[in-house]
Design a binder for these strands. Structure first.
Lengths: 143, 143
DNA sequence: CAGATTTATATAGCTTACTATATATTGTTG
DNA sequence: CAACAATATATAGTAAGCTATATAAATCTG
């Protein structure tokens, strides 16, 4: 039996993901954030004051992973966890001024990586690529 | 400024990569291997008896990452490290009978994940997707 | 309404990435 | 050929993913 890693979707995806991750790391390091914090920051920049549970559902990440990432973000002065007004179990996550102040720079950094990575593709090919990934995600969720 | 994670290539790639990783994990667990060992195993199944340096170059992974992955593979009885016959610094990595015995099962597991993930795509769309990822990897390496 | 179940978060332990640094051997060069 | 530079591997420390488990609060149910 044969198996060619160069035509294996999983193998290629993993490789591409590592390249994006490191490309983003380099570009956001100056702002004091790391790539793993990006999804939570995006969600909170869009709507501040969410519970951990809301973030977990939006980002499709495990609860324990989110809790640990939020620990590091709290340590780094990016968020504060305050008590939920009516639910004693829950905490609400609020961005600090520091987190708000780097928003535009971070958007630009992420856009720059995306632009660089797709620079060899035509507008149609880019659209197709994005669309295919969205379909693959939906297929996984059906599985 | 706006930034939509649902149309960000980097965001989507990261999500898809996690889904592949976990999909593979479930399917290869019965054989006593984990996803991070897969790239090294593929390279060694193709050509047994390579140095760490050769693997690092083929897999585009950092040397320290490879060393640690090989440590776990040695611990798990998948490989042996033997002295290089002429270069005292180098070690040669050899697969154990255990690693060889799971090869076909592992190939099948990986193919199953790929097939499932791409099941919603036409043959042309799959080809296009694979081709695009190869182009994106090349673009990153030019950067 | 007391006891059982569910829910929200936290923590422990593992893997797999990374950077930075250490160590030993090989190769080069004055 | 001795000193220096380059190369191959290993290790320490951090991040970000996972599963499994713990804890406290809320909800449901007989």
């Amino acid at each position: 039996m044969e198996f060619d890693h160069n035509t294996s979707a999983g193998y290629l995806i993993n490789h591409v993901a590592r390249l994006f991750f490191e490309g983003l790391r380099k570009r956001i390091e100056p702002f004091g954030i790391v790539p793993g914090q990006f999804p939570a920051l995006l969600a909170l920049w869009q709507k501040d004051g969410q519970t951990q549970k809301e973030l977990v559902e939006k980002l499709d990440i495990e609860q324990a992973t989110m809790a640990n990432t939020l620990n590091r973000m709290e340590r780094d002065g990016l968020i504060l966890r305050k008590d939920h007004p009516t639910d004693g179990r829950a905490k609400i996550i609020w961005l600090t001024p520091k987190a708000n102040s780097i928003r535009d720079d971070a958007y630009r950094a992420a856009s720059t990586v995306n632009e660089m990575a797709l620079s060899d593709l035509s507008p149609d090919e880019r659209k197709q690529f994005i669309d295919t990934m969205q379909r693959v995600i939906r297929t996984f969720h059906k599985d």
